[in-house]
Amino acid sequence: MPVIQTEELTKRFPSTTALDQLTIEVEPGVVGLVGANGAGKSTLIKILLGLSSATSGRASVFGLDVTAEGPRIRERVGYMPEHDCLPADVSATEFVVHMARMSGLPADAARERTADTLRHVGLYEERYRPIGGYSTGMKQRVKLAQALVHDPEIVMLDEPTNGLDPVGRDEMLALIRRIWSEFGITVLVTSHLLGELERISDHVVVIDGGRLLRSSSTSEFTRTSQTLAVEVSAEADAVGEALAAAGLTVKREGRLLVLPLDDDEVYDLVRDAVAAQGVGLIRLEQGRHHISEIFGEDQGGAAR
């Protein structure tokens, strides 16, 4: 049974239409909701939580109607808002315990769950410091902790990597993936950065201007392409030059050498080039399309 369902869900404001007859189904797992800023992602989450009403259409979470059963839905959901909404003068422990109590946990259980959750998100050593002195990354982790502390069945994370540097993004994405893989909690995560969701999601829903562009498994979005990605431990330029001398077209993408995979002989050429340089082969895999490429195709189709 889908965790979330919407049917022709529409939300209109005086000056814009945030959602336009949106029909989706969300199964258990990590589900990425992707779209540009203003695409309707945050509006959808607020409607699913019963915090905003739809203009028309229907939506349900766990089979519960969002219009009539908002409180029952919120008991089973954890929510991480996009914007900074944390009190500066209390510690992470005080805040997360308070949120656990608000969710109905007894005092002892709230304190125990808070310690476990702050340890999980990497804030255990800093748990007694006032939140006002935290970095942006630490504040994001506090928001994630309060969404998890009452052991929800699904968490809705609105732009959880906003304001983070590349290392902080990687760490946050790893935490999000573990929510499902280790604890079995379904995750609905929004982002305008397509590559992030490609890395962690089982299923991706793409919306634009409040309308559904595409909904499918990540593997379908990122189908294999006829390219080979090669990563070596050193001398990447030299390896690339050797492959080019062998007649291959080589493109450098960060640490990767990307070349066309016309036939199996390409693998032999890579092996020989790497061996000739005396370096280690870290990665050799068939390339995959990026969601951004597919999203661009869909946008082009929509425009037509």
Rank of each mutant, 00 (worst) to 15 (best):
M1W: 08
I4W: 04
T6E: 09
T6Q: 04
P14N: 05
P14D: 05
D20R: 03
Q21P: 05
L22T: 06
V26N: 07
G32P: 05
V34C: 04
T43E: 01
I45N: 07
S52T: 10
F62Y: 12
G63W: 06
L64E: 07
L64C: 09
A68Y: 00
E69V: 00
R72T: 08
G78T: 12
Y79R: 03
D89E: 14
D89R: 13
S91W: 09
A92V: 09
F95H: 15
A107G: 06
D108C: 04
A109I: 03
A110D: 09
E112K: 11
H120K: 10
E125S: 15
I131D: 10
Y134K: 06
G137A: 06
Q140S: 07
Q140L: 11
H150Y: 11
D151Y: 11
D158H: 02
P160F: 02
G163R: 04
G163W: 04
L164S: 06
G168N: 03
R169N: 01
M172A: 07
S181N: 11
F183P: 06
V187M: 11
V189C: 09
V189G: 08
T190M: 02
S191F: 00
L193I: 12
E196M: 04
D202H: 15
H203M: 11
V205S: 10
V206N: 01
I207P: 03
G210W: 06
T218S: 10
G240M: 05
G247I: 04
R252F: 13
E253H: 15
E253P: 09
V258I: 13
D262L: 13
D264I: 00
V266G: 08
L269A: 14
L269E: 13
Q277K: 15
G280W: 03
L281W: 08
I282P: 06
L284W: 08
H290G: 07
E297S: 01
G300Q: 14
A303Q: 14
A303T: 13
R304P: 07
